[in-house]
Nucleic acid binder design. Structure first.
Lengths: 187, 187
DNA sequence: CCAGTCGTTCAACAAGCGTTGAATTGACCA
DNA sequence: TGGTCAATTCAACGCTTGTTGAACGACTGG
């Protein structure tokens, strides 16, 4: 039944990391225990420590990711949202890499810093060229809206948003993102 | 130094509740311990149990709140955002009652249910009369945007949004909320 | 066939947790 | 003054957690 894997350091390391990603994402940092990760990976808890030294080490390894955003230079403003929304919806989806980070951010400063870094190094630069001014603010508003939708959908589990298909969400968010990217500000 | 309070059940109960609110709000459910709440309240841990029976009981007592939204019937759509945004910004602010609930929602199902209840019993009914259709969806999008801003500002601590004054935030959010409330949907 | 290496497990620790029941303290009334 | 009862504390329990060092066991090169 329980298939005994051959001895393979790199392999088991990957299995542990997979289980850790899953649990950190679903239950957050505190509720995820070394023991539960080890059990899910079919491995002794001490082995987890051996490979990742500490629980924080395991988390950092599990949360390390490279967020790739499409190049948006030259995309007409009216089309930007249509390109952007599907990408972000996937990144923030239940299987995406950002939700675990957000869940952990409640109690883990390292997770907070990682999210801030992703915003200022990836999101803001990607959106900057499309905006007339105040690029940071505009990007932050778009980003925070996406965070909110992700929280409402996947953490709180608000029925209306849980039930809403991605396409419908896109239709709603599209004009708003366009507004945030292009609307001139006087104040 | 450490002022010894007179024996007063109702009083100490309130002190404990205050400490609990503070800690649940700042550190979330898991990181808040009976012992730390008791210490902050200058009281024995057993006393906390005596008054609130269990940690979940303490949390429920600390998280119980009545969110009061202004009556919006008859307010012209263009003015709605101007009325609504300050109220929501305060409710979601660092001293408001909703942030603790959201922090706890990461790991506490009761907190999730409470947030869902607040949405469906308070927010959606308040916004419903202002919308031509799909009231739940429209309210959910506004609510999730506010959640996102709160998370970005007070949980993650995104510098751009932390530094943004409430008035500026209002100017940004106003047109978007108006759009969500009034924009006709064809799809 | 034996030694050594490396993946892996065993067993235990110290600390912190929620929770408990009995003991202690202090205030009030007879 | 002494008794009563509520408010509060003491001391401990059983459990889970992260973490550790030593032991085990399978494969590999000599």
């Amino acid at each position: 039944m329980n298939s005994v894997r051959p001895r393979d350091a790199e392999g088991t390391k990957a299995v542990i990391l997979g289980a850790a990603r899953l649990q950190f994402g679903q239950h957050g940092f505190d509720r995820t225990t070394i023991r539960s990760v080890a059990a899910a990976a079919g491995v002794d808890p001490a082995l987890v420590m051996h490979y990742f030294r500490t629980k924080n080490g395991l988390f950092e390894a599990a949360a390390t990711l490279d967020v790739q955003l499409p190049d948006l230079t030259g995309v007409p403003p009216g089309r930007v949202a249509a390109v952007l929304v599907p990408v972000f919806v996937k990144l923030w989806g239940p299987d995406g890499p950002l939700l675990p980070l957000l869940r952990a951010a409640t109690s883990n400063p390292a997770a907070r810093d990682m999210l801030i870094a992703i915003f200022s190094e990836k999101v803001a630069p990607a959106l900057g060229p499309l905006t007339p001014d105040r690029a940071q603010e505009r990007a932050a508003l778009i980003g925070s809206h996406l965070i909110g939708v992700a929280v409402a959908r996947h953490i709180i589990g608000l029925p209306v948003l849980e039930a809403m298909p991605d396409e419908t969400l896109m239709v709603w968010l599209g004009p708003v993102f366009e507004h945030y990217l292009t609307e001139p500000r006087t104040a």
